[in-house]
């Protein structure tokens, strides 16, 4: 039950999830996620042919708002929480000129 995932699997998931884990965490999640998915395996006992998936508890319909202008949040108020700004832009590490991430 503990061998559902390899260390590389966990590294791969962490990369997809934009998380960075140390060796101890990788081993911990390897075992814990394995145990949770072992439990989840019980869903395979059910015959689900022809069952419609239910993604939401209420029937959702598109709702259109009136096409009338309304006050929105002020840019300064919204940007106040940004960790790093350049003028009115969010600043991030350099993207161009580096090798692209896989």
């Amino acid at each position: 039950m503990t061998d559902r995932f390899t260390k590389d699997d966990i590294q791969h998931i962490a990369r997809l999830a934009r998380l960075q884990l140390d060796d101890e965490q990788i081993e911990q999640y390897r075992l814990q996620l394995g145990a949770v998915l072992e439990h989840v395996q019980m869903l395979s006992q059910l015959d689900l042919d022809g069952v419609e998936p239910l993604s939401h508890p209420i029937e959702l319909n598109n709702r259109l708002n009136d096409d009338s202008p309304q006050a929105s949040l002020q840019l300064d108020d919204v940007l106040r929480n940004a960790p790093q700004l350049e003028g009115q832009f969010l600043a991030v590490p350099r993207i161009l000129g580096e090798s692209e991430d896989a």
Binding site: A14, R15, L19, Q20, L21, P93, R94, S99
Partner: peptide
């Protein structure tokens, strides 16, 4: 990339 590493490290 530096951007992705920024995401990963900030979140972690």
């Amino acid at each position: 990339s530096p951007l992705v590493r920024m995401y990963r490290q900030s979140r972690s």
